[in-house]
């Protein structure tokens, strides 16, 4: 398939066909690993992480290493010249001389777009503040596709902090493009999705509802996407104390769930999913982290023009 995008800044840079292609390549990587073992030999990925990350940075690095390429970069602004006041533009123009592709995380919104304007090397947005995190969305889409066989015809529950969670907003926007997806938004009133997302849901004509209780809707769900309810998001301690347990998933709450429910979480988890759920076959959040490596391998290959 011909590549129409040079960078990945937002999930909306990708058409449905391009997402399908990345998913196909990610699946082919698992089915035919020998074909990919040295496919990026001689190519270098720079991971420029101006703020900390575990999964995203390591999965990018593991992805490139598994493709036979090499990695370089830094894992915090303090270990780069950003600490001396260097601009994003200058950092990226310099790194563009050393690497073939760049994955970048920055606390400021729009930083990867600035980077993409200053170098001919492909830029992957690995998270820009509370703005976008497109490779997490690709990870989520691959996980749903692998577990459910398709990206349409499902009831998707999203639970927890739906107001500030960028992964939730991107996933809703991405899933709105598929047929017959029912959205069940489970959140306290304080943490409901922002108005622009509600507006998009209304415009799309999708079936959606907002509820406060997880138990009330558990039996309907095909996928349950959990997020963390953070203490600092509440105006007062009493509200937090009142609501926090409501949004902790445990085995008791799962009693009414479907046998083939897919439980997802972008991780890191703090306490919103009981560790006892980890051994339940429906728990897919660590599998989701594995999917993250596969889809990033597919993305690297695509942006380098290899596959």
């Amino acid at each position: 398939m011909e590549k129409n995008f040079r960078n990945l800044i937002s999930i909306t840079d990708l058409s449905i066909e391009e997402i399908d292609h990345l998913i196909d390549v990610a699946n082919d990587i698992v089915e035919n690993p020998d074909e990919y073992i040295d496919i990026c030999k001689g190519k270098k990925l720079a991971t420029l992480f101006f703020e900390p990350s575990t999964r995203t940075r390591l999965s990018f690095e593991a992805a490139m290493l598994e493709l036979g390429g090499s990695v370089l970069g830094f894992a915090g602004a303090s270990s780069s010249s950003a600490a001396k006041g260097e601009s994003v533009s200058d950092t990226v123009e310099t790194v563009g001389c050393y690497a073939d592709i760049i994955a970048m995380r920055h606390p400021k919104e729009g930083a990867p777009m600035v980077a993409s304007r200053r170098t001919t090397v492909p830029i992957i947005n690995a998270g820009d503040g509370g703005h976008f995190h497109p490779t997490q969305t690709l990870t989520d889409l691959l996980t749903i596709k692998r577990k459910k066989g398709e990206l349409g015809n499902i009831t998707l529950g999203l639970c927890g902090d739906l107001k500030f969670g960028r992964t939730v907003h991107s996933l809703i926007e991405a899933m709105l493009r598929y047929d017959n997806v029912k959205f069940v938004l489970i959140a306290p009133e304080e943490l409901r999705v922002p108005e622009y997302i509600r507006e998009e849901l209304r415009k799309s004509g999708a079936d959606w509802k907002e509820v406060e209780s997880m138990e009330e809707v558990m039996h309907e769900l095909d996928v349950l996407y959990m997020t963390r309810v953070q203490r600092e998001r509440f105006f007062n301690e009493e509200d937090y104390a009142r609501l926090k347990d409501t949004y902790i998933l445990d085995l008791e709450k799962l009693e009414t769930a479907k046998e083939d429910l897919t439980i997802m979480h972008p991780l890191p988890r703090v306490n919103e999913i009981s560790v006892k759920v980890d051994d339940d076959p429906r728990a897919c959040y660590f599998y989701q982290a594995l999917c993250g490596k596969h889809i990033r391998m597919a993305l690297i290959l695509n942006l380098l023009g290899i596959k």
Binding site: S87, S89, P107, K108, E109, G110, M113, V114, G129
Partner: peptide, 13 residues
């Protein structure tokens, strides 16, 4: 005017 925007720190952007 978004203080979290890259334009708030990047020179002459």
């Amino acid at each position: 005017k978004n203080p979290r925007c890259i334009t708030s720190i990047e020179q002459e952007i």
